[in-house]
C-alpha cells in the first residue's frame, strides 16, 4: 500500500516536523519588522519545505570527493558554475580557513587541492567525515558548538559560499532570527587574525528577504555586513579570464548588481557573486 500526501498536506507535515520551520504569515510583529528593517525592505514568500531531507547529520564519507579531485569534478558539486573560476583567483596555500556553512564538501576539497593548512567547517548539522587530505588538517563544529566556544583568533581566511543568506530563516531547522546572518558573521569575525581576508558568496541585488529561501543583499545589508566585519571596503571577485564568457565584465560589480532592475535595458544575471570584504 502506498501513501500519497497532497501537496498542502505535505507542507503542513513539513512545518510540524522540521524544528523552527515557519510560514511567513506566522511570524510575529517583532520578527517581521526586523526582517524588513522597519518595513523599509520587501519580504516575499518563497517557501522551501524539504531542505533538510538529508537528515540532521551529514555523512560525507559516501561522497566521491577528495583532495585529488579535479576542478571539473568539484565543480559538479557546487551548483554554481562561477564558483571554481572565481575561487581560482585566490591564494589559499598555507592558509588557515574558517568555512561557514557547508552541506557538501566541495569547498573543503577545493581548499585542500590549493594546499590550505587548516580548515574548520561550521555547519548547523553534525558532520561525519574522514578526509584523506595529505597537507590539510580538517575539523568541524556544529553551529551551536561554534557559538558556545571561546573564540581563538587563528584563521586568516573566512569563506562562506551560499550559506550566510539562509541564517535565521528556519529553512534548515535553524531558529528564526532576523539578524542571524549578522550575528553569525560577528561571531566568526572573532576567530579571525587582524589581517584576515573575508570572502562571502551571496545573492546580490536590491535588498529583499525571500522567506524562507534566502536574503538578497543590496546596499543596505552589505553595508551592515561590512560594518559588522569592520571591513570598510567590498569588491567583487571576478572569474578567471575566459571563464563565463557569456556574462559581460560589467556584471561583476556591486554597483551593477544592486541597482534597481530595469528589465528593458539591463539584463539580470542570476549569479552568486563572490565578495571580498577588505580591512
Amino acid at each position: 500500500m502506498s501513501l500519497w500526501l497532497s501537496k498542502s498536506a505535505f507542507y503542513r507535515y513539513s512545518l510540524k516536523l522540521i524544528k523552527n520551520m515557519r510560514e511567513l504569515s506566522t511570524l510575529s510583529n517583532s520578527d517581521l519588522t526586523r526582517f524588513t528593517d522597519g518595513f523599509r525592505i520587501p519580504i516575499y514568500r518563497i517557501m522551501h519545505y524539504n531542505s533538510t531531507r538529508s537528515g540532521l547529520q551529514l555523512d560525507w564519507n559516501t561522497i566521491g570527493l577528495s583532495s585529488r579531485s579535479s576542478d571539473d569534478l568539484i565543480s559538479q558539486f557546487t551548483h554554481y558554475e562561477e564558483a571554481i573560476p572565481c575561487l581560482s583567483n585566490l591564494d589559499f596555500s598555507g592558509a588557515s580557513v574558517l568555512v561557514l556553512g557547508s552541506s557538501v564538501p566541495w569547498l573543503e576539497c577545493f581548499l585542500a587541492t590549493r594546499d590550505a593548512r587548516e580548515i574548520l567547517t561550521v555547519e548547523y548539522r553534525a558532520i561525519r567525515w574522514h578526509p584523506d587530505f595529505p597537507r590539510t588538517e580538517w575539523s568541524s563544529l556544529t553551529f551551536d558548538e561554534f557559538m558556545n566556544s571561546a573564540p581563538y583568533p587563528r584563521f586568516d581566511r573566512l569563506i562562506s559560499y551560499s550559506s550566510v543568506e539562509h541564517s535565521g530563516l528556519g529553512r534548515y531547522g535553524d531558529a528564526i532570527d532576523p539578524e542571524g546572518d549578522l550575528i553569525s558573521l560577528l561571531t566568526a569575525s572573532r576567530w579571525l587574525t587582524p589581517d584576515a581576508r573575508v570572502y562571502l558568496a551571496l545573492p546580490v541585488g536590491p535588498d529583499a528577504v525571500l522567506f524562507n529561501r534566502h536574503r538578497v543583499y543590496g546596499n543596505k545589508r552589505l553595508k551592515l555586513i561590512a560594518r559588522v566585519l569592520q571591513t570598510p571596503n567590498v569588491r567583487v571577485v571576478p572569474p578567471v579570464p575566459g571563464a563565463l564568457a557569456d556574462v559581460p565584465a560589467e556584471c561583476w560589480s556591486i554597483d551593477y548588481a544592486v541597482r534597481q532592475p530595469a528589465p528593458a535595458d539591463r539584463p539580470v544575471y542570476d549569479r552568486q557573486l563572490l565578495l571580498e570584504f577588505i580591512r
Binding site: T33, T36, E179, I183, L224, Q230
Partner: peptide, 15 residues
Amino acid sequence: NPPLIDLISLRRRAL
C-alpha cells in the same frame, strides 16, 4: 563598539 552600535540601531529602526 561599532558592530554593537549598528545592531542596536537596526533594532531601534524596527520600532
